[in-house]
Every structure is written in structure tokens, then in C-alpha cells.
């Protein structure tokens, strides 16, 4: 395995441990009354709101973790259903849907949004490739497939575009429902429609497994929960198939990744290409887990950041020509090739 990929794997495993089991490490940090006065206010559901009073153990949305220790929302996916984690609270989609339902004032949300935008601005969608626990799980599935000698399924370009539309559609539906059930007249729907995307998100079923906790994988009490349960199963099946037969196909429709992707072209992490050095071997496009081809096609000097790029830097790594593809941070070379000098580099 090459150096960048090796570093990425180590970072992924480290982040998985930190984000999933981080709560164990920081268990002493109890939430104190001063949190209200700290940098980030703790976001709480309004007292007595249905979404909270009706949530009991056994409900789909019951968070398996303890109370959040550091209330924070990283740009990558960290789940409400982490086993006793609670180091970080949830993903950005959870953040938006929850607070739309609670109708939290904008001023309380501003610190979180600032942090989110800052991180995304600096690193772009690097979260997806390097941090996201779901992506790590998927990469493990891909690893299994490779070991079993099953060839990768390469999806056509149009299919991947449609997947991102699906992701935007899901996001729009989720946020609309969250807004509607936040209105007083529709508050009685909160017990079923609270966090609609979370209920079908594969992370809800996968994240508890890391802590050897049985996820609440079925709830057939009413037709709504039945539908959500079935949808969650379908989505989980799609998720596993997407990662097992393709590579990062799922990441094209992950709403969290889509929100991150808005910052990709303006991000601090820039991927540069010098076409004069390119020998058009296609290694980069072939190795891209998202199936992007911009780095292969581009024939002008410049940045080839793409919205769907998860910045795994695999293209930079496999490029056989030194200086053709490179990573820069705000235009300054981080000389990643020198740090991770490959054996047969020039």
C-alpha cells in the first residue's frame, strides 16, 4: 500500500475511534450549568416539546449515547446513535432538521454554523474521505470485496449525477418535513416525523454496532414506523451494495456530503494539475473512488477540484509523473510528495 493511502487509513481508524468511542475518553467532562455561558451554547429541545417527551427507550430515534459532552457538529457524519459516544453530537443534517423542528433562534445556531463553514472552507470535502465513520465502514466493505476477487462495478456518469439529485431531493424532503412539524399546529406529528432523514439513514443501524449495541432495527407499531423501518432496510441494502460492488458510490447521494461539497471548489485544499507533464495514462481517473475524470480531461494549468471529490488524494498518489498532479493548501505546496516519497518516484 502506498504512503498517502496508508496515512489515510490510519487517520480514518483514529477518527472512527475518536468519534464513536470519544465519549468514553471524555466521560468526566460533565455538562455543567456554565455551558450556557461557554463559547458554544448547548442546543436543547424546548422543554416539554413532543419530540422529547415522546422519545423513550425503544423508540427509533432514541439516542444510544449518553448526553453530549462537547456539543459539536463536525462536517462529517457522526451519529446521534453512537454507542455511548457523545463526544460530538451529530451530523450537519441532523443539526438542521433538529433545530428547524425546535425552532431554535438563529443566534444560537450561529457559532455552530461558523465552525462548520470554517472547517469546510479550510478542508473542503476532505471529511468524507478521511474522517467519516460511514465512509470508513464502506471502505472496509470495498477491502473485503477486493480480497474476494470480485471486480469493481463502474457506474456510468449519468447514474452518478442522478444519485446526487436523489440526495438533494432527500435533503429537501427531510428539511421541509422538519420545518412543518415545528409549526405549532403540526406538533402532534413530531413523535413520528422528527428527524425524518435519520430514520432511514444507514448510519442509524450501523453506528450502534460499533459499540456492540443492538440497533433498533425494527418497529412495526404503526404504519409510519413500519414504512420508515422498511425504508431504512432498503437504504441499508443500497448502502451495502453501493460500497460492496462499487467504491464510493454512496457518497454521491449522502446529504451531509452534498452540503460539504458546496465548499469544495473554493476550499483551502487545492488539487493542481500541470498538463504538460501528463502522459494521459488514466491512472488517476481509474483510481478515483468517486469515478471523477476531471483530472484526466483537464488540459490547462490549474485547479481541478470537483464538487463530488472527497479529497482522498488517491489521484495524486498514483500519478506516475512527479509534479503533474499535486496538492496545495491555499496555493502553497505542502510538498506531500516529499513527505510521502514513494519508492519509484523520480
Amino acid at each position: 500500500m502506498k504512503k498517502i493511502t496508508m496515512t489515510r487509513r490510519i487517520v480514518q481508524v483514529f477518527c472512527l475511534i475518536l468519534l464513536v468511542y470519544g465519549g468514553y475518553i471524555f466521560k468526566e467532562w460533565k455538562q455543567s450549568p456554565e455551558t450556557e455561558q461557554s463559547l458554544f451554547p448547548a442546543l436543547k429541545a424546548p422543554a416539554g416539546s413532543i419530540s422529547i417527551t415522546k422519545l423513550e427507550k425503544g423508540s427509533i430515534l432514541w439516542p444510544s449515547g449518553a448526553t453530549p459532552v462537547i456539543e459539536n457538529y463536525p462536517p462529517s457524519l457522526v451519529c446521534r446513535f453512537n454507542p455511548k459516544g457523545g463526544m460530538f453530537k451529530a451530523c450537519i443534517l441532523h443539526f438542521f432538521s433538529e433545530n428547524l423542528t425546535w425552532q431554535t433562534q438563529l443566534k444560537y445556531l450561529l457559532p455552530y454554523i461558523t465552525l462548520f463553514i470554517l472547517l469546510c472552507f479550510l478542508l473542503g470535502r476532505m471529511w468524507c474521505g478521511w474522517v467519516c465513520p460511514i465512509g470508513t465502514t464502506g471502505d472496509f466493505l470495498t477491502f473485503l470485496r477486493r480480497k474476494m476477487n470480485i471486480p469493481v462495478k463502474r457506474f456510468p456518469h449519468n447514474f452518478r449525477i442522478n444519485l446526487s439529485f436523489t440526495g438533494y431531493g432527500l435533503m429537501a424532503i427531510a428539511l421541509t418535513i422538519s420545518t412543518i412539524i415545528g409549526m405549532p399546529n403540526f406538533a402532534r406529528y413530531q413523535c413520528y416525523w422528527f428527524l425524518p432523514y435519520c430514520q432511514i439513514c444507514p448510519a442509524r443501524l450501523i453506528c450502534p454496532l460499533f459499540g456492540l449495541i443492538r440497533p433498533n432495527w425494527k418497529d412495526f407499531s404503526t404504519s409510519i414506523t413500519t414504512t420508515f423501518t422498511l425504508l431504512a432496510w432498503i437504504v441499508l441494502g443500497l448502502f451495502i451494495a453501493a460500497f460492496y460492488f462499487g467504491r464510493r458510490v454512496w457518497c454521491h447521494m449522502c446529504p451531509v456530503g452534498l452540503i460539504n461539497s458546496w465548499f469544495n471548489k473554493g476550499a483551502g485544499v487545492e488539487l493542481h494539475k500541470k498538463p504538460i507533464k501528463c502522459i494521459k495514462c488514466g491512472y488517476c481517473a481509474d483510481a478515483c473512488p468517486m469515478g471523477l475524470t476531471k483530472m484526466y480531461e483537464m488540459d490547462k494549468d490549474g485547479i481541478y477540484n470537483q464538487n463530488s471529490c472527497i479529497m482522498c488524494l488517491r489521484c495524486v498518489e498514483v500519478c506516475p509523473r512527479k509534479g503533474c498532479l499535486s496538492v496545495k493548501f491555499f496555493g502553497k505546496g505542502i510538498r506531500i510528495k516529499d513527505f510521502f516519497r514513494r519508492k519509484n518516484a523520480e
Binding site: 463553514i117 472552507f121 471548489k265 473554493g266 476550499a267 476531471k294 490549474g302 485547479i303 481541478y304 477540484n305
Partner: peptide, 14 residues
């Protein structure tokens, strides 16, 4: 604002 400006630059480049 910076993100939008940088995005526009990247799009122009591509």
C-alpha cells in the same frame, strides 16, 4: 464570500 470568490475562480480555471 471568500468561498464564493474562490469557487468562481476555480470554475473559470476549469
Amino acid at each position: 464570500l471568500i468561498t464564493v470568490l474562490r469557487t468562481l475562480r476555480t470554475i473559470r480555471m476549469q
